[in-house]
Design a protein around this nucleic acid. Structure first.
Lengths: 240, 240
DNA sequence: CTTTTACCTTGACCAAAATCAAATTTCGAC
DNA sequence: GTCGAAATTTGATTTTGGTCAAGGTAAAAG
């Protein structure tokens, strides 16, 4: 039993309407994991009993094909859960999860989550909305892959990390450029070159993992012409 | 009020756990639409009050970008609902819906659907599972776009229409090749040429919209090497 | 402080798909 | 059945991104 863990879970927006017994039982059963880069949390097609709340660090979800290629499904950080999808896939994890930046997770019981879904309709509704927005986000990504070119996709990715909509801003890429590349569905070499083009076209400044955007609106007009949403496009999955 | 409509709704798997009053009220309020090719059902960003159950015909969902390109999100046929997503987007339709093959729809009340979601936890759970599998299907599509080439994607598309897993089979493409192409995220010219390559590689036979697969397993081994799922991969969204 | 290793970039080349243009076929309306 | 619009195919060419190979750079280990 851990009061801190319970506090942390109570602050997670998706759980805002969960019952007290949910929090108590979850916290009782929970354990905190300190993770290190490279660690595999679960494997695609493995039977699932736990899901994970990310307190810090980054985790990638991916699948592998017969001929060895890897498809990165998503990359998650703090205030997100992963592995809950197994509930809807006969308790089999649909992806492999691997830590890409060390941090801290809370391992949680899928069966307690399921119990709450069976008994708390308000929570089930919240989860449904969460899932629906998740799906919309995927639609947007499919659109981006087919309608935006590589530099535009990178611009869009950068815009997603900004906390304002005009003027200048500086961000740090949260994880390896190689991983950003596969998250965006391109090769590292293509990413590197496309970032160079983006620099020329929009006047951004790149120093290692630091990116200075001197004028957000220039970046917007470069990337968002090839998108069906209007900037600032709300992030559809992380918040709920 | 229409007894036939009520029967049709009661047979839809997603509604299997809905209340009697849900069916009665829905059927009372429902109206049947005969649709013709080209008809627009609703527009992206329009306020939403109705969703649609497809009795027959085909409907495409799409969005348009600032620079005029069109992204086909999905193409649906009988025993599917469309427009329900607006419930999770502040009652705004997230896509435009256009009939691509004439048929028949049932126009249904979003607010009655919402009422059932608020009051019937079993149904909300079914809907959550439905949405979760939907999302998984989108992940699979993203993977396909980045890991499969054009002929492989077409092969995978064809496999999705077969009702067996080995031997030979014949299918009819359900809608224009042009639309299949955009559904798969490629240009019509690319589709045409890629279908030609698929013919050479797997021995399928193409006559207009009719495709004869002489050996399903050949098609599987051609397409599914570049996929993380194993054939026969269950369809993740249509059934529930 | 040096070495190692993993990450990133660059160059040369290649392959896939997009684009542009022009037939050709198909299908529905008359 | 004929006409005309729309869909489909084919050819030529360009563009984009992928692949292979070689350097360079920076963070971490010793």
């Amino acid at each position: 039993m851990c009061a801190t863990t319970e506090q942390e879970l109570r602050q997670y927006p998706l759980f805002r309407n969960c019952s007290d017994s949910f929090f108590t039982d979850m916290a009782n059963d929970a354990h905190v994991l300190k993770t290190s880069k490279g660690q595999v949390l679960f494997l695609h097609d493995d039977p699932a009993e736990r899901f994970y709340y990310i307190s810090s660090g980054w985790v990638k979800l991916f699948r592998e094909t017969l001929d060895g290629a890897q498809a990165v499904v998503d990359v998650f950080t703090r205030e997100n859960i992963i592995g809950e999808g197994a509930l809807f896939e006969d308790n089999i994890y649909p992806y492999t999860a691997e830590v890409v930046e060390s941090g801290s997770l809370i391992s949680l019981s899928l069966s307690i989550l399921n119990r709450e879904l069976q008994s708390n309709n308000q929570f089930t509704n919240d989860m449904l909305g969460f899932m629906a927005r998740n799906k919309r986000q995927k639609d947007k990504e499919i659109e981006h892959i087919s309608l935006q070119n590589a530099p535009q996709r990178i611009g869009c990715f950068i815009l997603g990390f900004l906390n304002k909509t005009e003027g200048e801003a500086t961000i740090h890429l949260p994880y390896d450029k190689t991983l950003v590349a596969s998250r965006l569905g391109m090769q590292p070499e293509t990413f590197s070159r496309a970032l160079g083009k983006l620099k020329v076209s929009t006047g951004i400044n790149v120093k290692g993992a630091t990116i200075e955007v001197s004028d957000i609106e220039t970046l917007v007009s470069f990337s968002c012409v090839a998108c069906s949403a209007e900037f600032p496009c709300k992030e559809l999955c992380s918040k709920c």
